[in-house]
């Protein structure tokens, strides 16, 4: 019989983030498939007590809390100690956590402390005859596998954007858990946005705009038009509210013709970049085969604008490919959006 602990961090305002609420749904659904499973929540943070309310109605027996000022911000030493205490207090055999930067930072180490096993970035959970399995991607989203383990506690982090977020209803009983929080040599100073100007990465945007290396290449007139490309792309991001991704080649670009000044490695999707989740994706001036296109593996509706009808970014991967000059198209798109 499994005891499932949902491990989440309270936000600074005492709420729970969307990935945590999604993980709550996953935990509830898994518990429903396992006969006799016990479902608990473990919350840590400076305002952990207030956060429990957001989990009400999801079938949790109770919420275990580690609440302390030093948990206001993510920091390995204190977060790991809090998580360890919650797992120990729960007696959990399965520990589920959202794969946020905060939980990902500590989960594997805590699994080692608890002499458990860990798998991360699960995109689905299931159970057959009482045996739990998880689905996750391997080799940068190039292949998908189903994993299971005998060892307990088994720690699993869940990819954000996969499950529907839980909507709270009713109350949830909570219980503080003592956790000796260690001294740390790390002092968290705060958050910093890239200094390169506008914030272009918007995980919650419905649309991902992917810029490819073609934007910086020589056009039909034999010249590169990088500043025009910058103007068009930033103009579009401003009007559409889209998040900006870049192919590896455009992010890496330098030298001849210059590169898009506002793109950093944080924007990179695919290969060694991110694989963000958005409802729609518009790829422009991208070209590449399978390894490159994993960047929009988790984008639902996909369209592309490219001069090559056989573009690997699009053929068999996009819903629609417009064989057209992206400079002209995006200029007109911006006009239409402005109008």
């Amino acid at each position: 019989m499994e005891t499932i602990l949902l491990l989440v961090a309270a936000e600074e305002d005492g709420g729970l983030g969307k990935p945590a609420l999604e993980a709550a749904t996953a935990a509830r659904e898994l518990a429903a498939r396992l006969e006799g499973a016990k479902l608990l929540a473990g919350i840590f943070g400076a305002q952990a007590g207030r956060a429990g309310a957001a989990l009400a109605g999801a079938g949790f027996g109770e919420a275990l809390l580690v609440e302390h000022e030093s948990l206001a911000r993510a920091r390995f030493a204190t977060d790991a100690a809090a998580c360890q205490a919650l797992v120990a207090a729960s007696g959990a055999s399965l520990v589920l956590a959202p794969a946020t930067s905060r939980l990902q930072r500590v989960l594997a180490a805590v699994s080692a402390r608890c002499r458990g096993a860990v798998d991360t970035h699960a995109t689905a959970l299931g159970a057959e005859s009482g045996a739990v399995h998880a689905t996750r991607w391997f080799y940068r989203q190039r292949m998908v596998g189903r994993v299971s383990r005998e060892r307990r506690p088994w720690f699993l982090s869940l990819e954000p954007g996969v499950f529907a977020p839980h909507a709270a209803s009713g109350d949830l009983v909570s219980r503080p858990v003592p956790a000796p929080l260690p001294e740390s040599r790390t002092r968290v100073e705060g958050l910093r946005s890239p200094s390169s100007g506008a914030q272009t990465i918007r995980p919650d945007a419905p649309l991902l705009f992917v810029a490819g290396a073609g934007w910086c290449k020589k056009q039909a007139d034999g010249l590169a038009h990088v500043s025009e490309a910058e103007r068009l792309i930033l103009g579009f991001l401003g009007k559409s509210g889209a998040s900006l991704g870049g192919s590896k080649s455009v992010v890496d670009q330098k030298g001849e013709g210059g590169a898009l000044s506002f793109l950093t490695h944080l924007n990179q999707v695919g290969q060694t970049g991110s694989t963000p989740r958005h409802a729609k994706g518009l790829a422009t001036c991208c070209h590449g085969e399978e390894p490159h296109t994993v960047g929009w593996r988790f984008v639902s509706g996909r369209r592309a604008v490219n001069l090559d009808a056989n573009c690997g970014w699009a053929q068999g991967k996009a819903d629609v490919l417009y064989v057209a000059d992206a400079f002209k198209v995006m200029a007109r798109v911006n006009e239409l959006l402005a109008g």
């Binding site: 890496d252 670009q253 330098k254 030298g255 070209h287 590449g288 085969e289 090559d308 056989n310 690997g312 053929q315 068999g316």
Partner: peptide
């Protein structure tokens, strides 16, 4: 007529197994 398997566009051939890289 491209079949996406053996008969692929010239640029796609560059990306099939024998991919091309250039150091900047």
């Amino acid at each position: 007529t491209l079949d996406g398997r053996l008969l692929v566009s010239h640029q796609d051939a560059l990306l099939k197994g024998g991919k091309v890289r250039a150091s900047g």
